[in-house]
Write a protein that binds this DNA or RNA. Structure first.
Lengths: 224, 224
DNA sequence: TGCCGTATGACAGTCCGATGACAAACGCTG
DNA sequence: CAGCGTTTGTCATCGGACTGTCATACGGCA
């Protein structure tokens, strides 16, 4: 049905929640620290993450930001702190939902379902996108140029995927900053720099840029 | 930034929330009944809907189900009822989030942002406006003449889009200044200059201007 | 013909995108 | 946990494209 990663330092809560989630039909995996959670999500990505805010070592906010850099997994904060300030901070850090302890399992399950419904609809199952001699394989985390794999960094890859998911459509720097970096605001030159780096890797022709196009005043687009 | 439809029967709450949302930068529109809300969403879709559960006539749950049949707009329940049963029912009916009254505006704003961030990834919908051999593709930031892309600057593009959105309708220089440049007042000759530049690019025929017409004393129009 | 509104070409200031350099952060390895 | 190569974000700079203004030429209409 689905897998959930629970990052929560209180042993009792962690155990009872994992059990409750498994009763609801999820494959649940619990860890006690943010660091462990990040490792777990990197090696074996769950498709939803629950994270407590009060954690030893790296706190929950930082954990959320780091998770966002790993992938676009839906994140729900589960915290005892119920003041508006924490809720806002959690959501701004990149969480999708915030639930206050003590947790009603039925509510948690319903929120999980709602979030997964939304996240699933948003993720167009793209297995491969081809732009002339350029292929993007999101599942495999690979980019090929004329069939040959090209070494691309994670950020470059995310950027390319984002562009590839909307072929021929202009994406503004602002949109790209939000979707690739998760920034609400930020220096838009950052996008330029990464586009430039990407171009060096995926466009060998010294002539006009073929696929990764600049649309002056609007943004960038990837076209066939 | 974004538009929000608020379905809430209590006048005081509705008004204060719409105002608060507008302070946050949203275009907010409030209605008092589910029926009105459905009509509003059908005629002029907002990109997020807030709905109260206790409504006269059609209740909130049914309203959510109906909204879901209209489009895939993100929905947040705003309700005074805080028991798990209602939360679960609201989310199961198709809502994306559930917030309990009294509402902390900052939290609502944060939840709106989180939801929109998540929901934004979808929505392809490519629209094309065609005028004979001239095509305007707003999504792609592109203009084509006989299928061939034409290099157009940002201002020219905006101008063309504005004209293309009202086919056959005369737009005054004042209207164009306002909509393309955002100027309340300004030198109307500016429009002429850009129309001229645009014509050179999209009309190769040395004869009579075919699509981008001057209407003496009134303004310009784009016709098929 | 005279008038008023429109078209056009030139120009200088400004804006925008590309790029290379650099320092900090990261992540892998021993 | 220390070291090292890689990746990332910031910055300054450059060249070119774009924009708005102006002066002037054109053209329809009374």
């Amino acid at each position: 049905m689905g897998s959930v990663l629970l990052i929560e330092d209180d042993d009792r809560i962690r155990l009872s929640l994992t059990m409750a989630l498994e009763d609801e039909g999820y494959t649940a995996h619990g860890v006690a620290t943010a660091e462990e959670g990040l490792v777990a999500q990197r090696s074996d990505p769950a498709d939803t993450v629950l994270v407590d805010l009060m954690l030893p070592g790296m706190d929950g906010f930082e954990c959320i930001r780091q998770l966002r850099r790993v992938d676009d997994v839906p994140i729900i904060v589960v915290s005892a702190r119920d003041d508006t300030h924490d809720i806002v901070a959690g959501l701004e850090a990149g969480a999708d939902d915030y639930i206050v302890k003590p947790v009603a399992v039925k509510e948690l399950a319903a929120r999980l379902r709602a979030l997964r419904r939304r996240a699933r609809a948003a993720a167009p199952a793209m297995t491969v996108a081809a732009f002339g001699d350029l292929e993007v394989l999101p599942e495999a985390g690979e980019v090929r140029l004329r069939g040959e794999p090209v070494a691309v960094t994670r950020t470059e890859f995310r950027l390319l995927c984002e562009l590839a998911e909307h072929p021929g459509q202009v994406l503004s720097r602002e949109q790209l900053l939000q979707r690739v970096w998760g920034y609400e605001i930020g220096d838009e030159r950052l996008v330029d720099v990464h586009v430039g780096r990407l171009r060096h890797k995926i466009e060998e022709t010294p002539g006009a840029p073929r696929h990764l196009m600049t649309v002056r005043g609007l943004g960038y687009k990837l076209q066939r």
